[in-house]
Nucleic acid binder design. Structure first.
Lengths: 217, 217
DNA sequence: ACTCACATGTAACGGGTTACATGATTGA
DNA sequence: TCAATCATGTAACCCGTTACATGTGAGT
């Protein structure tokens, strides 16, 4: 249900096409929500017919034309209503934890490679988040980048927050840009804390699994 | 897709009825997976017709009869195959983070109460996990129970890991009970680390939101 | 009489995933 | 010529959520 609202927030931060939204969901918004382009186009169409968003055809040179979506008044109201309604603390779903408990019934040590793969994925994500934080929020990013030894091997550092939009929007500026940036940063810090926790926990799991290394038939 | 496997793991740890499984998903398994009884009955029926589980009618005195499910050979094979196949690191979905970024466009301070509610829920869960850990794994649970001041107010302490099953199963004991307990404990430690991280992050968010307390029109 | 815990389901809806499909332009 | 990026969609399936439904026995 919150995909609608995630899209609204993203369009408020900066209007854009379905394709552009899909890329944002692989970057900054991906810290806390994922969505494929199929989902996004479906929701955009519904929100358009509900009058939550406005569409504008943008012809482009050297590229296919695109539809630029922006939030309409009704969409803003819907978002506001959702923001003021309480939501239940989210339920967790960790496939890997199912595997770890299941490993007790099938060679625990065989899981080590899989857990290491996940640890690497989280290390990569952490490196991306930290690079984005340094770039977009100018944090010094000093000493303890990693809670433990092991090379993060950063592969790429694309911008995680979309380029700051031009300060002159035509739809009534309503809030100092500070709040937008500060809250984006707070969410990013949550992503960083999450990745750090996961890496530390996966190290814990690896140490536990290692104790069963010779136990198989 | 992993609900099937979560149920198989739970039934391997101890056979039981759909109703009992539903209660386990509110307790120990709830650390990493949630499911309602409707889902569970649906999956059990499918797994039964696929020969993954066996059913046994158990008449009871003073209570409705129940169907006790246990894992069949085919179910064990299916679980094993899944354990050996790689899975992608899970995608995150945090409604609250959507709200936090959305708050920039609608009175940030209005979110404070909501964030405090979530903080309390995570504090409660942490207290439950720690109580379960102390009970089932005998950890001393010493100094820093909470990373910050605020009363957790523990309401209840039900058993989080189901009672240790009788050591004499009839279906071929294959592994010292150590692995089962150690891995359950590792997963529980993950739940504890997650709740601690969330509490610390929500404090961070609250501090950030407080900076916008007087900013509304 | 009423409520709670136990116990098992059906049905409808909506959202997420995966597969399939099209077409333009740029650069190797 | 082939692959990659930009750009937008349709269709089918499965899973999770919510609402509805039924019935027993124990305790207040």
């Amino acid at each position: 249900m919150a995909l609608d609202h995630a899209i609204l927030v993203s369009l408020l931060e900066k209007p854009g096409s379905g394709y552009e939204l899909a890329r944002r969901f692989e970057r900054s918004i991906g810290y806390f929500w994922t969505a494929t382009h199929q989902q996004i186009y479906r929701v955009l169409k519904r929100m358009e017919s509900d009058g939550w968003v406005d569409v504008r055809d943008v012809p482009q040179h050297g590229r296919p034309d695109k539809k630029e979506y922006s939030v309409a008044a009704a969409g803003r109201d819907a978002l506001s209503a959702w923001l003021h309604a309480p939501i239940e603390p989210e339920s967790v779903r960790h496939d890997l934890a199912v595997k770890i408990r299941g490993a007790a019934f099938d060679d625990p040590a065989a899981l080590i490679g899989e857990v290491e793969r996940h640890r690497q994925a989280h290390t990569d994500r952490l490196a991306r988040y930290l690079a984005g934080e340094a770039r977009d929020f100018g944090t010094p990013a000093p000493e303890d980048v990693r809670p433990d030894g092991d090379d993060p091997r950063v592969t790429d550092t694309p911008p995680d927050v979309d380029e700051p939009r031009d300060s002159g929007g035509q739809s009534g500026v309503e809030r100092p840009l500070d709040a937008e940036r500060e809250l984006q940063h707070a969410v990013l810090r949550g992503g960083i804390a999450y990745e750090r926790m996961m890496i530390a926990w996966l190290d814990d799991v690896l140490a536990t699994l290692a104790r069963f290394r010779t136990a198989r038939s």
